[in-house]
Design a protein around this nucleic acid. Sequence first.
DNA 1: GAGCACTGC
Length: 988
Amino acid sequence: MARDDGDDRSSKRRKLDFNPLRSDDRFADDLPTRTLNRRKDDSFKSRNPTPRGGSRFETPEGDPYADQVLDRDWYGGDDDLGGHVFGDDTHNPFGGDSGWETLEREAAMTEKKVAAFSRGLNAQQLQRQKDNDAWETNRMLTSGVAQRRDMGADLDADQEGTRVHLLVHDLRPPFLDGRTIFTKQLEPIPAIRDSQSDMAVFSRKGSRVVRERRTQRERAKQAQAATNVAGTALGNLMGVKEEDTDSALPIAAEGESKPQGSNKFSDHLKKSDGASDFSRTKTLQEQREYLPAFAVREDLMRVIRENQVVIVIGETGSGKTTQLTQFLYEEGYGKLGMIGCTQPRRVAAMSVAKRVAEEMECELGSTVGYAIRFEDCTSKDTVIKYMTDGVLLRESLNEPDLDRYSCIIMDEAHERSLNTDVLMGLFKKILQRRLDLKLIITSATMNAKRFSDFYGGAPEFTIPGRTFPVDVLFHRSPVEDYVDQAVQQVLAIHVGKPAGDILVFMTGQEDITVTCELLQERLDALNDPPKLSILPIYSQLPADLQAKIFDRAPPGVRKCIVATNIAETSLTVDGIMYVVDSGYTKLKVYNPKMGMDMLQITPISQANAAQRSGRAGRTGPGQAYRLYTEKAFRDEMYIQTIPEIQRTNLSNTVLLLKSLGVKDLLDFDFMDPPPQDTITTSMFDLWALGALDNLGELTDLGHKMNAFPMDPPLAKLLIMSVEYGCSEEMLTIVSMLSVPPVFFRPKERPEESDSAREKFFVAESDHLTYLHVYTQWRANGYNDAWCVRHFLHSKSLRRAKEVREQLVDIMKMQNMPLVSCGTDWDVIRKCICSGYYHQAAKVKGIGEYINLRTSVTVQLHPTSALYGLGYLPEYVVYHELILTSKEYMSTVTAVDPHWLAELGGVFYSIKEKGYSARDKRVIETEFNRKMEIEAQMAADKKRLEEKMRDEEDGPQLVKGKKGLGKDRKTITVGSVVKPVKQRVRRGI
DNA sequence: GAGCACTGC
């Protein structure tokens, strides 16, 4: 890149004033942390309970309220846990309206509009920007980071008023011309069963008390902002010094600032002291024999001997997960190959393996081992291998028939994780090639028939469970505000019911916080209330606070755990006797039209409800209070949650299947096929990235991308970074993007954490900001205490380090060199542009951008490094869109429009007045490229159409003609594919 | 000028 031309104007009008790759002394460990003490101002919130909450429980003596509430509001449903009969007509009842939120799209942008948006600022804003420019120029010149000549050239360019305009082309690859079907699921699948139902309406509206709290907080914040400018971006720029009041205020995370070695599960498992009387007094063998699975062992083994596929219905407490593998081992299956058992979660794979190793009295990693990402605890002696489903899926890439295994158990298959579903489809074919392979699928009662039907009527075998009865109580009338009602219910239980802990299911962090606050306030308002220990839990909560829910409460104190879904399957707390179920959850749904995932509050499914209620019956009989009517349960909830494969972005999966040799996705036997829209969007994205060619076949780039366990755009960044000579830096950026957010922003100290974050900003790029954070962390010895001081999640950073190490290994294996570009951030930004050009946006207004291709208006997120820049870069690319109150771009980097045209030639070309010689050259090359692309597309289209004609002549011969059979022995299709309407082409 | 359930490679 010619930096000295002076006409490379839009991208680098600002020079970075520090080097993200050098240890920066502002972050040195020994500097005092600059913090603010805001606690005083905050406190009024918690001392000021709502009048309503205060008065309701002030009954003079006793508390008749509790029983009264129960009598009025509750009755036993006829659906106790044992009595549930779930039909198998489960998914996709397409009754009801679409649950998709459709956002208005702007009409296609005309060229005129493009021109109008080119500045997107009014006169006043322009003036402010000019002032800012002048000020910054001055700062840079005086600080010595910039030479006057550079700045002069930039400013001149601005004054000339020559702007670059991008023209946008709406090209689609020939294989996605709208006539091809890829799946049997042509219609989208609504996330909510009936969008007009009470629960759907209430979930859209949200909880009133939560809204009230939110506005209260905002008002308090405004009041604060008025009296204090320090701690803001402006404050920092102006050099406002803040008092070091840190010592007076221990923050929540400080307590865990002691160095924590690693994220390895083995470390976490040591502290589990769940030893019951039973486990202390009985030998391991006696414990095994006590399990229900033990009693049915002979029958089960016979069924497995006689059938290739068996569905095992293992109820909670049956011991299936630990015993099945051992039975198979004792039966001799281990001599024929490994016995594999997949788990949907890492912790489960690890802890179950540990338990089985103990029972078999062998070292973990010898006969019994486990494999999860970052930890392969197996050896050549391993016979019983526990693993996550993702690990097995990756193994199938290298070993398509899974030859090393004699049996595979897919545990918890009813959860229908994306990986499980893909494996299910793969097994359909594998089993036909490998008649000696045994497949055992374990499932909860209600899904068993689906699995059985899928595998041609495989036998079902039930292992009884060992749980206690749970009384299920439905609310009499629809509950409009689930948070308020949940709080009332908990208090009613607390004051009116015998001892036993309470578990409340909420949707997310905000709900949980409000619930806890309200509970405490209303409890405090009671006259001498019994003691209640209120404990929130959600995954984002720091680990030490999470651990508190497992501590036994002191005598006479009741525990009340307020949790997200995390307590539904991932965490099991003993001693829960009461469950309060809000009936809602946050569900990730994919909107292919907008190409984005969103988290939507939705009513839970009946299966979720059963799972939640069941949590009350682990250690004794329990009660479940459902904050919805029995009618709502029956009519407004899906029987099963829509499987993940039908509500998520599938570019990853499509890429995987393509490289597994699945040429025609229509032929792939999904238990529940993903919707057409989702597949076409995913394919389009892959094509736009260059992973699929114009005919829909995997390209070399696509093959390479498959080696990396991450989303396709990130994999592409890594591959491109080798060409650009910045793979060291890109490895870090990609790792940071693959972990949960690193910036910690506690509600109690928003300003401090904001200013801490701002200190890491690299102008014009959030990607580079991440690089900066990581390099600083490394420069400070990967120190946890340093993270706490700078409001960073050390857990995420450590995870990023692990991811990075794994990616380095893969790069080495792929013979991709690790090279550093030193301090040339333009190279990194250009490389970023090469991976994200399909997600580019142009400035439209203050903090507002418009997606170049889709014309969807998107916002710059206030946490972006570009926000406080003082001006808005004209063109940006972004990592992803997140929908909260608005559509926000998250992780944004400013780019040069020339880069977009050069790298994303399929979509963009340059239109420009006042050409310089360089621009002319660029434009000519781009024009030639464009012509090439168009010629290629036309040729491919012709080829494709010829192929299509061939196929219509002889539908049954298609496979041979497509050349599918050449390098594979047999092509078998599990079930008969329905004949496709003529003139509609089959999938590629 | 804001806030994101849970997994997994």
